[in-house]
């Protein structure tokens, strides 16, 4: 499949453990490759999804392994949309400032990098709260025509 007009849809549900990050990356990689992204862009998408899921495991579920992470992927009209949903604690992404590495280094802070990376790697990153108290982050990457 290497056409921008075809429709692609896939979904996976995984438990909230870091054990599953390798599986999540494999699922993302095979989807991005099937759609026709280059190796370089596929690598960026894989890392962004890893960061989003890592944040959910750490912050939404606070390392409790029993939470569910729903990852759905859709490709239509050259737009690859990855929606990642959880039922954990809500967090306000607007309260997390963009990191300044030099300040981070001084303060020995190591968090917050994931969200910064996601914004750098993807074309769009949007957080929202959806019905039933679920949190959702939507990542978008456009396939160059």
């Amino acid at each position: 499949m290497n056409s921008a007009n075809k429709i692609f849809e896939k979904e996976i549900v995984v438990k909230s453990t870091t054990d599953n990050l390798a599986l999540i990356r494999e699922f993302t990689k095979s989807s991005a490759e099937e759609i026709g992204f280059s190796d370089e862009v596929t690598g960026k998408i894989v890392l962004a999804v890893d960061e989003a899921c890592t944040n959910i495991i750490k912050h939404a579920y606070k390392y409790s392994p029993n939470g569910d992470i729903y990852i759905s992927m859709k490709f239509e009209d050259a737009k690859f949309t990855i929606s990642i949903t959880d039922e954990g604690n809500h967090f306000d992404p607007n309260k997390i400032p963009e990191p300044n590495l030099r300040e981070y280094y001084k303060q020995k802070r190591v968090g917050g990098l994931g969200m910064f990376l996601m914004k750098k790697l993807m074309d769009e990153v949007k957080y929202s709260t959806i019905t039933g108290n679920k949190n959702q982050v939507v990542l978008v990457k456009y396939l160059p025509r």
Binding site: L21, L47, E51, Y105, K108, R109, V110, L113, L117
Partner: peptide, 13 residues
């Protein structure tokens, strides 16, 4: 991923 990068940041100082 950033979790790995964070390790170097945590110890370098």
């Amino acid at each position: 991923s950033s979790a790995g990068l964070g390790v170097f940041m945590a110890y370098v100082e």
